[in-house]
Every structure is written in C-alpha cells, then in structure tokens.
Amino acid sequence: MQQNKYDDSGFFEKYSSMPRSVGGLEAAGEWSTFRAMLPDLRGKRVLDLGCGFGWHCRYARENQAKSVIGVDLSENMLERARTMTDDPHIEYRRLGIEDIDFAAGEFDTVISSLALHYVEDFEAICRKIHRCLDDKGSFVFSVEHPIFTALAAQDWHYNSEGEKLHWPVDNYHQEGPRQARFLDNDVVKYHRTVATQMNALIASGFTITKLSELQPTQEMLDSHPAWQEEVRRPMFLLVAAVKS
C-alpha cells in the first residue's frame, strides 16, 4: 500500500520545519557523501524518485544536466518544489515510485534520496529502473540502514538515568513492514537486509560500484556533535550502481 503522509497538513507542516527541509542539501548530513557518489551530470537525462522539494532536481540542473524529471506521490511536496523551481528543463510529476513506467533507455541517471525504504517490492523497482536507464546508466540512492530499520521502535536502549547504552538490533533477517514513529505519526517502512538489497540490484542487471554506511568524518563531529551517535551505529546506507 502506498503511503502519502505528506499531504496531511499537520505532518507536512512538521516536515517543512525540519533542518533539511529548510536548509536543503547542505543541511542533510549525508549529502556530501551522496554527492561524491553521483556521476558527472553534464548533458544527462536525470530521474529523481521521491523528489520531495526538488533539491536534487535543481542540483542536477545546476550541474548542467540536460533534463530532469522528479516524481513524488505528494501534491504538497510537488507544489513546494514547483514554487522553488524556475527552470523549464525540470518537470515534476505526481506519481508513486511503484507506478513508474518510463520508456526503455529514457534516462542516463536515476537518483533517490531516503525514499525507497517506503517501497514494499524493492526488486521490482530495481527492474524498472534498469529498464529505463540507457546503457551504462547510473543508479545512486540512499535508504535508512537495515540496522536502523530492523526494530520498529528505531530508538536507543536507555538506562534508568536516561543514558543511551546501545542501539538494539533484533529480527534482522525477518524482513517486511515496520510501523515506526516519524514526526509523531505512524509510518510504515520496509526492512530488508543489506544482502537482499545488493542481490536485488545484481539480479536486476546492475553492477555495484560503491557502498557507504556514512561514517562521520572528524570535521562532521567537530561541527555537529550529534553526529557522534552515527559512530555508534549507522543510520544511512548509500549505494551507487551502473547498468551492466
């Protein structure tokens, strides 16, 4: 079942006040790593799955992409993206990620940021992406790390004084939906192991070229002490692959 929490006015208001929603890509801690995994975008036809406010779409055009299509299920997201975009070479479409049906070889690069863990059938999406990519096209995406999604609570284990003792991991190999809390709302995320995701890419015809579990740099730790938590457990998994 597709979720569209972002068209709920209260949820969207809370999301809009998040630092990454206000500050854009530079306010997203994983951005520098994600950016380094992207191919040269000059002259490329780009598809952004789960485009949100269109930050990645605009970045692609700023880096001389030929054209960009951003898809999202939320009309609130797309309305905000259109308001923030003044570029005839960027097109936004209201469409669920599961429903994409683009022509074979229509794109050179497909990107997706923190959206695919909301999709139930990851391998089906990989096959669709492989089909719509031109030969040797790139697929770069980020998701919440399986260590982060394994338990629906997505929280630390605390002692009686409220100190964060450790991040619990359980039922790791029991894949499927997890009802988590995000911005004081229940949302369904789909937990799948690292192996399942990598094997789905390989089975769909991709060659994996780079993985990142986003280990914070000393610079990140110095500028944002909260990143110390990411040393203790990974929150993000970033993947770059090319069409074989």
Rank of each mutant, 00 (worst) to 15 (best):
residue 66 K to T: 09
residue 109 T to Y: 00
residue 73 L to C: 12
residue 118 Y to E: 04
residue 90 I to K: 11
residue 120 E to W: 03
residue 70 G to Q: 06
residue 100 I to Q: 14
residue 78 L to G: 07
residue 119 V to K: 00
residue 96 G to E: 13
residue 73 L to E: 10
residue 81 A to V: 05
residue 111 I to W: 09
residue 85 T to M: 08
residue 89 H to W: 09
residue 115 A to H: 05
residue 64 Q to C: 10
residue 69 I to W: 09
residue 66 K to S: 09
residue 81 A to M: 06
residue 68 V to S: 12
residue 80 R to S: 04
residue 107 F to H: 06
residue 118 Y to T: 01
residue 97 I to G: 01
residue 89 H to S: 11
residue 84 M to D: 13
residue 90 I to R: 12
residue 81 A to H: 11
residue 103 A to D: 14
residue 74 S to R: 01
residue 71 V to T: 07
residue 108 D to S: 03
residue 96 G to Q: 09
residue 97 I to F: 01
residue 104 A to W: 00
residue 100 I to L: 15
residue 84 M to A: 14
residue 67 S to F: 15
residue 87 D to A: 08
residue 111 I to Y: 08
residue 103 A to K: 15
residue 111 I to A: 08
residue 113 S to K: 02
residue 84 M to P: 02
residue 93 R to L: 15
residue 75 E to P: 05
residue 105 G to Q: 13
residue 109 T to L: 02
residue 119 V to N: 01
residue 106 E to A: 12
residue 101 D to L: 14
residue 92 Y to Q: 02
residue 95 L to N: 03
residue 64 Q to A: 13
residue 68 V to C: 10
residue 99 D to R: 01
residue 71 V to F: 06
residue 78 L to D: 06
residue 101 D to H: 13
residue 70 G to F: 02
residue 111 I to E: 06
residue 69 I to S: 09
residue 76 N to Y: 11
residue 69 I to C: 15
residue 106 E to C: 08
residue 107 F to M: 07
residue 111 I to F: 09
residue 100 I to W: 14
residue 83 T to D: 09
residue 104 A to K: 10
residue 94 R to L: 05
residue 112 S to K: 02
residue 89 H to K: 15
residue 86 D to S: 11
residue 94 R to S: 10
residue 103 A to N: 15
residue 74 S to A: 05
residue 94 R to H: 10
residue 111 I to S: 03
residue 110 V to R: 00
residue 77 M to P: 14
residue 95 L to D: 00
residue 91 E to F: 12
residue 73 L to M: 14
residue 102 F to K: 06
residue 104 A to F: 03
residue 100 I to S: 14
residue 92 Y to K: 04
residue 69 I to L: 15
residue 107 F to Y: 03
residue 64 Q to G: 11
residue 116 L to N: 03
residue 87 D to R: 13
residue 66 K to Q: 08
residue 85 T to F: 07
residue 106 E to N: 10
residue 83 T to S: 15
residue 79 E to W: 06
residue 96 G to F: 09
residue 79 E to S: 12
residue 114 L to C: 03
residue 101 D to K: 12
residue 78 L to H: 10
residue 99 D to G: 05
residue 91 E to L: 14
residue 70 G to D: 04
residue 121 D to P: 00
residue 73 L to P: 04
